[in-house]
Computed example of a mutant assay.
Amino acid sequence: MNTTSEIFQFEKDFAGALYCIPMAVRRKLDLSGVKVSLKQWNHFALDEREQMVAQNCETSSEIDDYGRYVVAVIEKRTHQPAQLLERDDGSEWNDTQSVPQRVVDYSIECEVAPPTAAQWARLTPLQRFAIFKLTRPGHSNENFVPAMREFKLIQ
């Protein structure tokens, strides 16, 4: 499996059987600008979920194809129109030059050392996305510290 389709250890309990939306899919959804609720996700067939994990979503055409695929699955399975969002270009989490301030602040709040710029730069885009996503305001983000450990950012 390539690193853009990886299911991390910290999410195996809930995403390994694809009952919940794994970070790999969340990243692709953000890139393609399609919102999928957990309720919608649970209407999808297992092979459709697996396709959403495995399908490439890196180039402009792959991102467009991914978005079209997800919209079609939503409409087929829920009989409702898909909700489209502004596409996330990844500028905050994809910048390898500096750790986003939100990650630094959340690390301090969790009483763990924030990633250094060198550590952040070594992470894969999916790992950076996961860490960034796990610092969302208003969410419990209980997997932030396990993700930091898994990615060897803390011990």
Rank of each mutant, 00 (worst) to 15 (best):
L29W: 09
L29E: 04
D30V: 02
L31E: 03
S32K: 02
G33E: 02
V34R: 03
K35V: 10
K35L: 15
K35F: 15
V36D: 03
V36C: 05
S37T: 15
L38V: 10
K39W: 14
K39F: 14
Q40C: 06
Q40M: 11
W41K: 00
W41Q: 04
W41F: 14
D47M: 10
D47S: 14
D47N: 14
R49W: 02
R49A: 07
E50F: 03
E50S: 13
E50A: 14
E50R: 14
E50N: 13
Q51C: 13
V53W: 01
V53C: 07
V53D: 01
A54T: 08
A54Q: 11
Q55D: 08
Q55M: 15
N56W: 05
N56V: 04
C57D: 00
E58I: 10
T59W: 12
T59K: 15
T59L: 05
S60I: 00
S60L: 07
S61C: 06
E62F: 09
E62V: 01
I63A: 10
D64W: 11
Y66R: 08
Y66W: 07
G67R: 06
V70E: 01
V71K: 12
A72K: 12
A72L: 00
V73S: 02
V73M: 06
I74Q: 06
I74D: 01
K76P: 00
R77G: 01
T78A: 04
T78F: 00
H79A: 13
H79Q: 15
P81V: 06
P81I: 04
A82V: 06
A82Y: 06
Q83M: 11
L84A: 01
L85D: 04
L85A: 01
L85M: 12
E86W: 05
R87A: 10
D88W: 02
D89Y: 05
D89C: 04
G90L: 02
G90H: 07
G90S: 08
S91C: 03
S91L: 06
S91F: 09
E92V: 08
W93Q: 09
W93R: 05
W93V: 02
N94C: 06
N94A: 08
N94D: 14
D95E: 13
T96C: 02
P100F: 05
Q101R: 11
V103N: 03
V103T: 09
V104T: 15
V104S: 09
D105Y: 03
I108E: 11
E109C: 02
E109R: 07
C110R: 15
C110V: 02
E111Q: 12
V112P: 02
V112R: 09
P114R: 03
T116Y: 10
Q119A: 02
Q119D: 10
W120T: 01
A121Y: 14
R122S: 13
R122W: 00
R122T: 02
L123C: 11
L123R: 09
L123A: 04
T124H: 12
T124D: 06
P125I: 01
P125T: 11
L126S: 06
Q127R: 10
Q127A: 06
Q127V: 00
Q127D: 06
R128Q: 08
R128H: 11
